Computed example of a mutant assay.
Amino acid sequence: MPDKDFYQVLGVNRDASDSEIKKAYRKLAIQFHPDKNPGNKEAEEKFKEISAAFDILKDPEKRSKYDQFGHDAFRGGHSSGGVDPFDLFKDVFGGGGGRGGFGSIFEDFFGGGGGGRASEGVSGNDLRVTVSISLEQSASGVEKEIKYSRHLECSECEGSGSADGSSKTMCPTCGGVGQVASNQGFISIRRTCPTCNGSGVKIENPCNSCSGQGRKKSSDSVKVKIPAGIHDGSRLCSRNRGDAGPQKGPFGDLYVDVQVKAHDLFERDEDDLFHELFIPFTLSTLGGTVETPTLDGKVTLKIPPGTPCNKTFRIRDKGMPNLRSPSHRGDLYVKIVIEVPKNLNKEQRQKLVDYGLSCGEEDLSSESGILDKAKRFFDGDN
């Protein structure tokens, strides 16, 4: 499969919502479906491409892996659910049995799947929240308590949706399947049954507290352990912490998007950190030692005589811990920035003039004299 960016394939931004991704795929799938483009190999390949992209981005777990590792997440060592478009679409292109036809592709949009029985229950929605942490917390790992709202089982009916003593019967609209199908031309569309909301049963006497849903909106909280070395934009999953399904249906999951705030002193690139250290030109000329900050506190850095501007020093193991191997850390790169004095008093200026004369400097004008030459030297332009 060509390494095309899946978001670009669907024409959506990387922060697109699930509904935006589904809408983009539905539009492209209709446009390039082989039934509408018979004999058009280019359209067929395009359809495979957009469908493979949708298969990854519609799944929160696969999408998280793709956001972090790109296409490498589904190759070789990352055997975490790779997608072969020819296997994915064998039903569409005549590869064998199954549900077949264009309708099966669209089941994802309309509550579909393989048509599970109502006794399995309708799953609750997955939820997403965002938590912000500092770079220091990302380096050490942190536990965060997240407060959010979700649907929980109704305490009055214990999640059944029925009032005490009331009975349930098979839904007459969907026959207990939880879905109804309709044909629109060559497209077969499955939707959640409007009568039973996907449960497959009809409640004779609904619970007054939850109106037969078996769940109510409630406040909740969960403690999430954020591992050391986590990157900005990473996503964690807390199983069964999403919405409860209607009428004792299984819980959805809670996805936690981690946002690492920008730092005042350090820039991050993978596991390495970068810092600009300002020093006086006398120190860069004569050499000496200076303290530089790290995430673990200040360390002493030796400055050799004649150190030019933009010289970068590497301090090993003072970067970020590796997410998969926290005992291994990146490095800290310190780039030297030389501060050239702007406001010299008369005595300071005369001493620099004397230094210039001792070096054979003849032109000591304010525009092109020793100060400008010194500035060019310390900026690395000599």
Rank of each mutant, 00 (worst) to 15 (best):
G212Y: 03
S221H: 13
G76S: 09
Q247H: 05
G116E: 11
S238G: 01
P326A: 02
C171N: 10
D331L: 01
S221N: 13
G101L: 03
G115A: 05
S218E: 08
K48F: 10
D108G: 15
V122L: 14
K373D: 05
F54V: 00
K351G: 05
E362P: 01
S51P: 06
N322W: 04
N382V: 15
F106H: 11
T195L: 04
E267Q: 07
E156A: 15
V177A: 06
G11T: 14
L254A: 10
E156R: 08
S149A: 07
D296L: 14
A139W: 09
E347G: 12
N208G: 11
S104F: 06
T307P: 07
F278R: 09
E143L: 02
S366F: 12
K261D: 14
S218P: 01
P206V: 01
N40C: 09
S368V: 07
V177R: 08
S234Y: 10
K168H: 08
G198W: 06
I21S: 00
R14A: 03
F110P: 03
D372S: 14
K23H: 11
K373L: 14
E20M: 10
K351Y: 08
C359S: 11
A244D: 15
L323E: 05
K65M: 10
P227H: 12
G101T: 08
S155C: 03
K216D: 03
G94K: 12
G116M: 12
R14K: 11
D87W: 13
S19D: 07
S218V: 09
D91K: 11
K168G: 00
A43P: 02
G116C: 04
F109R: 08
E267M: 05
I146M: 08
V256E: 00
Q259M: 06
G175K: 02
Q247K: 13
A228F: 00
G297T: 11
E267W: 01
F102E: 04
E204V: 05
L254N: 13
E153N: 03
I336V: 15
F69S: 06
A73E: 03
R349P: 00
M170T: 15
I133G: 05
A181G: 14
K36A: 14
C174Y: 09
S17M: 04
A244S: 13
G159C: 00
F186S: 15
G380E: 00
P280I: 13
R14C: 01
F86T: 12
I226T: 04
S155Y: 12
Y66C: 11
E291T: 05
R324D: 12
D253N: 13
E347L: 14
G249C: 06
D354R: 15
S132M: 09
V131Y: 08
F109P: 04
Q8H: 08
I203G: 00
L344E: 04
P321D: 11
D317Y: 13
I30T: 10
A24G: 01
F109K: 13
F186A: 14
S188A: 10
D91W: 07
K335P: 00
K302L: 14
S219F: 03
F281T: 02
G242Y: 10
